[in-house]
C-alpha cells in the first residue's frame, strides 16, 4: 500500500485566523479517505494545499511524491479536482465542457460513459448557468474524473444531491477507488463517511483529532458519538 497523499505538520494563517496548525494525515491508493470536521476546521484549506491552490506557511505536502505547488502538467493530469464552488464556466453546456476538459489528457476516461453514469444526458442541452445545484455537482464530479486520475480530491461531492443521485455518486466513487485511485472526500455526512470511507480523518481547529478505519475509530460507539466527543471538547 503506497502513500498517494502525505500531509505533514501543515500550518497556514490567513491574517489573524489560524486555519491549519500541524495538520498531518496520509491517504493511500485504492482507498477512499473521508475528511470529516466542522466548518472552519481546515478541511478545504488542507485540500487546497494538496491541489496546489494554496501554499502552506510551513510543513510538507506530497501528492504522488511531488510538491503540488507549481507542479507540472503531467502531475496535474494525474490529479482530479472537484471544487466546492464547482469551478464550471457558466456559459457552456455540460457535455461540451467535459469533452473539452478530456482534451487536456492523452488517455482520458470515456466521456459518454461518465455522462451516462451520472445522468448528465438528461440536462445536456442546458447551460451550466441554468443547472440546479445537484446537476452542477454531478458535472463537477465528472470533470474531476474525466482524466482517469490516480488521486481525486472531491470537496463535498454529494452535498445537495437527492438520495438516488447520491447512491450513483457513491457507486462511481467506489469504482474509481477499485481502479486504484486514491479518493479523498471532504464531507459533513456521517452516513457518507460510514458507507464510503476505508479511512476516516476527523479534523478540528486545524489539526487531526482522530484517524483510522471506521472500526478502529468507533469500536462499540457510533461515529456520530465519537465525532462529537472529539470535536466538542476543544470547541
Amino acid at each position: 500500500m503506497t502513500e498517494a497523499v502525505t500531509v505533514r505538520e501543515l500550518t497556514k494563517r490567513f491574517g489573524a485566523t489560524t486555519a491549519l496548525q500541524g495538520m498531518t494525515w496520509t491517504a493511500h491508493h485504492g482507498q477512499v479517505t473521508a475528511v470529516l470536521g466542522p466548518n472552519g476546521a481546515g478541511k478545504t484549506t488542507t485540500i487546497e494545499c494538496a491541489e496546489g491552490l494554496q501554499r502552506p506557511d510551513s510543513g510538507e505536502v506530497r501528492v504522488l511524491g511531488v510538491d503540488p505547488w507549481r507542479a507540472g502538467a503531467d502531475h496535474r493530469a494525474c490529479v482530479g479536482v472537484m471544487l466546492q464552488d464547482g469551478g464550471l464556466p457558466n456559459a457552456t453546456k455540460p457535455v461540451r465542457l467535459l469533452r473539452h476538459l478530456a482534451a487536456f489528457h492523452q488517455s482520458p476516461a470515456d466521456v459518454d460513459s461518465l455522462v451516462d453514469r451520472l445522468g448528465i444526458g438528461a440536462f445536456s442541452g442546458t447551460t451550466v448557468r441554468r443547472l440546479s445545484g445537484g446537476q452542477k455537482q454531478r458535472v463537477a464530479l465528472a470533470a474531476a474524473l474525466v482524466g482517469s486520475p490516480e488521486v481525486a480530491f472531491l470537496d463535498e461531492p454529494t452535498a445537495g444531491l437527492d438520495p438516488h443521485a447520491r447512491l450513483e455518486v457513491w457507486d462511481l466513487v467506489r469504482e474509481t477507488r477499485d481502479a486504484g485511485c486514491a479518493v479523498i472526500v471532504t464531507t459533513h455526512s456521517f452516513e457518507e463517511a460510514q458507507r464510503l470511507a476505508d479511512q476516516i480523518v476527523i479534523v478540528n481547529r486545524g489539526r487531526v483529532v482522530g484517524q483510522g478505519s471506521l472500526a478502529e475509530l468507533t469500536g462499540e460507539r457510533s461515529l456520530e458519538d465519537v465525532y462529537f466527543s472529539l470535536t466538542r471538547e476543544s470547541a
Binding site: L53, R76, F104
Partner: peptide, 18 residues
C-alpha cells in the same frame, strides 16, 4: 471577472492546462 467568481480560473489552474 465572472470566471474568477465561479472558480473557473482555479479549476483550470489545477487542470493540465495550468
Amino acid at each position: 471577472g465572472f470566471d474568477r467568481r465561479y472558480g473557473v480560473l482555479r479549476l483550470l489552474g489545477v487542470s493540465p492546462l495550468g
